[in-house]
Simulated assay, not measured.
Amino acid sequence: MSYRYVLFNKPYGVLSQFTDSSGEERRTLKDYISVTGVYPVGRLDWDSEGLMLLTDNGQLQHRLSHPQFGHSRTYWVQVERIPDFNAINQLQTGVMVGDRITRPAIVKLLTEEPSLPAREVPIRFRKNIPTAWLEIILTEGRNRQVRRMTAKVGFPTLRLVRVAINRLNLHNLQLGQFRNLTVDEIKILLK
Rank of each mutant, 00 (worst) to 15 (best):
H71C: 03
T111K: 14
V183K: 14
G154C: 12
H66C: 06
A151C: 01
I188K: 06
T74H: 04
A132S: 15
S21K: 15
P114V: 02
T182G: 09
W76Y: 15
L170P: 01
A132T: 09
G94K: 11
K30Q: 13
Q61V: 00
T111Q: 14
H62C: 01
R119H: 04
L181K: 04
S2E: 15
I82G: 03
S21D: 15
F8T: 02
E49P: 05
M1P: 11
G58K: 12
I106W: 08
P83S: 06
L116Y: 03
P117L: 07
Y75P: 10
Q59L: 09
K152P: 00
F155E: 02
R63N: 07
G50D: 03
F8Q: 05
V35A: 11
N9M: 01
L110K: 08
I137T: 15
N143Y: 15
L64R: 05
I165T: 10
L15R: 10
N57P: 02
K30G: 01
R43V: 05
I129A: 09
I88P: 01
L110I: 07
L109W: 01
L170K: 03
E135N: 10
E113Y: 00
P130T: 08
F125L: 12
V77Y: 05
Q174P: 02
A151G: 12
S48E: 03
R63P: 00
V35P: 03
R81G: 14
L54Q: 13
S48D: 10
L168P: 01
G70P: 00
L181Q: 01
A105L: 08
N172A: 02
F18P: 05
Q78K: 15
E135T: 08
G154T: 05
P114E: 11
T111P: 02
R43G: 10
E140Q: 15
T157R: 03
R167K: 14
R4E: 14
G58R: 11
D56M: 08
R167D: 10
V6R: 09
S22F: 09
N128Q: 08
W133I: 07
L60F: 05
Q78C: 13
A118W: 00
E49W: 01
V107E: 02
K10F: 04
I186W: 01
R26F: 07
R142S: 11
I101A: 08
A151W: 06
L138K: 09
L15K: 09
G70D: 07
N89H: 14
K108Q: 14
Y32Q: 08
I106K: 15
Y5N: 11
S34G: 09
V161E: 05
D184V: 06
M149E: 11
K191A: 04
R124L: 13
N57V: 04
G94T: 08
I88V: 14
H171I: 01
K152N: 14
A132R: 07
G176L: 09
Y3C: 11
T139W: 00
F8K: 06
V95W: 06
K10S: 06
L54Y: 09
K191V: 02
E185Y: 04
R119M: 05
F69H: 15
L160V: 07
